[in-house]
């Protein structure tokens, strides 16, 4: 009996380091450059913090001016000197950010593999990789358009988002993948955003788009310092 107990203890101790790695937070230097179709260009430099438990994307911006942006749930918060100066609705859900998806290991399918509303309807093998077409279930076809994902070598390479009229709204390309402590993450994301003609009075050409290039560097996983920034306080 004691022998079995000893073996059990030995195995439990030995297996501890073999347990699956748990990735819960990420920090990186970030630069966002936007060349807009309407001639407005922007550059933003800073650091980004994300913790999988708090589900807040915190941007600590240093250029063009010091400020902090927090994306939480469906809200965007702007802080200057730790004082809230702006709050708006956000269309970016932290759970579908590359930070969350990369930490959870679901970036390859964009977290949509078992989504209750959006289902894979078509799979095609091409020279560029595997193209998966996802469509919403019948009750959501008036609200959500199709989505296409391109994957190659088990890495998400590109996403296409369409509106309900099948018009292309966004193209994203994920490049320069790196592996940090087992987490695969693209260091360069190039996004083409197409203006929605429904929100414009003037005619919109199909070749008009805004270009946003996001680069990540100095990526660090599971750091335990700077707790304040990973869970930046926001009002209720």
């Amino acid at each position: 009996m004691i022998r079995y107990l000893f073996i059990a203890i030995l195995f439990s101790v030995w297996s501890a380091p073999l347990q699956a790695q748990y990735y819960f937070r990420m920090k990186a230097d970030i630069s966002i450059k936007e060349v807009s179709y309407d001639g407005i260009n922007r550059i933003v430099l800073g650091k980004v913090y994300y913790d999988i438990h708090h589900k807040k994307i915190v941007y600590d911006i240093t250029f063009p001016e010091k400020e902090r942006w927090v994306l939480s749930d469906t809200s965007y918060y702007l802080f200057k000197d730790d004082i809230l100066v702006e709050r708006n609705l956000s269309v970016i859900f932290p759970e579908f950010s590359i930070f969350h998806l990369a930490l959870e290991g679901h970036l390859e399918d964009y977290g949509l593999q078992d989504h209750p509303v959006i289902k894979v309807k078509d799979i095609e093998k091409t020279e560029d990789g595997i193209i998966r077409t996802l469509r919403p279930t019948a009750e959501y076809t008036d609200n959500i358009g199709p989505i296409k994902l391109l994957t190659k070598d088990r890495q998400l390479k590109a996403t296409l988002f369409y509106n309900v009229s099948e018009r292309l709204m966004s193209r994203q390309f994920f490049e320069d993948y790196t592996v940090i402590k087992g987490v695969q993450i693209p260091q360069k994301i190039v996004q083409f955003l197409y203006p929605n003609p429904e929100f414009h009075d003037t005619e919109i050409d199909e070749d008009q788009y805004s270009l946003i290039q996001t680069t990540l560097s100095n990526i660090q996983i599971n750091r335990t310092d700077e707790e304040f920034l990973y869970n930046y306080p926001i009002p209720d």
């Binding site: 450059k33 296409k148 390479k157 193209r171 190039v190 270009l211 290039q213």
Partner: peptide, 21 residues
């Protein structure tokens, strides 16, 4: 072919921002 784009064109458009950075 929406899964492809002109990388040179992207670099050209983003160039002056990179310079500023």
């Amino acid at each position: 072919n929406s899964f492809d784009y002109d990388r040179d064109e992207v670099q050209r458009r983003i160039h002056h921002l990179t310079t500023l950075e």
